[in-house]
Design a protein around this nucleic acid. Structure first.
Lengths: 207, 207
DNA sequence: TGAATAGTGTCTTTGAGACACTATATG
DNA sequence: CATATAGTGTCTCAAAGACACTATTCA
């Protein structure tokens, strides 16, 4: 009477070419064969948590071992999938820029797609992307999610660019730097190299 | 292999006597008989969503039919309860001030307790309260959760008091009123009555 | 009328935006 | 040296805080 399945649906975000992108896959079987959707896997009841299942997806679809995971929402409609009663845990991974992706160990057609130009997705996965995007916007406003899009060391201009992409606005350089004085940044001893202009100092987050 | 149980753990908040309080129950059976914890129920796999289970808890423990529900987190540790594999959905209800509670249809010892003076709770329910409190703080800062603590009609002083309780700070009356001009308030045609001072106008939220 | 809280006018202080400037790397 | 981006000094303007004031009800 109490038993059901549990599933993780994954929205996997990365900034590529100044666009916030999400990873989508092409289905290899029914239902909706050949249609696009987000990756989703069953949680193995014997030995897996939500996070461990999410990690399996990350590793399989991108080859990456470290990223930032956040739960978004639980969806538990009784009739969402008529084949079995389940509970769906929506999750979001955020991958830093500049990280090399090795896609498709799962043999599926895997691609990153800018969310401003998303094709239609089957199931209710469009809604998951929209929900995740709202969460990102919300947490970008107070700056708390920005760090997860950045590599460990980054220039202040890079940080500014991430803010601008996520919040769809621009900042004046001088004022931006005054604002971020509040967030815990620490200059490293490294600078940019081989750039044909004054090299920027690399910074990192503290704590 | 994929089947498991699903549970909702409920943190039910209400402001009582200028304190943010949470509802706790006393267990009637093992494990932890007589110990205190949050109410938690199984999700009936045949005919219930997370929200419907949460509603059963609300109705049973308080007699109330309307409140604000928010999902907090999913907890899915394999060994949290050795008796069965489960997935725990943490939820939070927020009840407006001035709403009459009829506790204990469940026969349990039910009480509201100020979170600043919480007794120890069994399972990991202390952690749920802490998590919920963090979420409330977060959403109180931009004002988006405040409305759920208020009845449909309220005075500006009442609104200010809720802000002050949730954010543990004070506001200067003049400045507070300038700030809340931005949130969508609409004056009603009603005033306070039988108060021995200038009566305040009741306001309500729009949209 | 006095007590008590509602609600306002306005000066001061702080922080955000605009913009022009200087600094330092490559070639 | 020119070019390109990094990084700073400072004026302006808008929002937040401080504080004193007026308004309206009951007893």
């Amino acid at each position: 009477m109490h038993m059901m399945r549990a599933v993780t649906d994954i929205a996997l975000f990365k900034i590529i070419d100044n666009n916030l992108c999400v990873l989508i896959v092409q289905r290899a079987k029914d239902p909706y064969v050949w249609k696009r959707c987000l990756p989703w896997w069953f949680i193995n009841a014997e030995n897996e948590t939500v996070e461990q299942t999410a990690y399996r997806v990350l590793k399989t679809e991108t080859g990456i071992s470290h990223a930032y995971l956040e739960q978004l929402h639980v969806f538990s409609s009784i009739h969402r999938d008529p084949r079995w009663r389940a509970i769906w845990v929506w999750c979001m991974w955020i991958i830093t820029t500049g990280q090399k992706i090795i896609p498709g160990a799962s043999q599926k057609n895997v691609m990153f797609c800018p969310i401003k130009n998303l094709p239609s997705l089957v199931f209710d996965h469009q809604e998951i992307v929209a929900y995740a995007h709202k969460v990102i916007l919300n947490w970008a406003e107070n700056g708390s999610i920005i760090k997860h899009f950045l590599p460990p060391k980054f220039t202040l201009s890079h940080l500014q660019t991430i803010y601008e992409i996520l919040l769809s606005r621009t900042y004046e350089k001088r004022n931006f730097r005054r604002v971020i004085e509040k967030i815990w940044l620490k200059p490293t001893k490294q600078k940019e190299r081989w750039v044909s202009h004054r090299p920027a100092i690399y910074y990192m987050f503290r704590k």
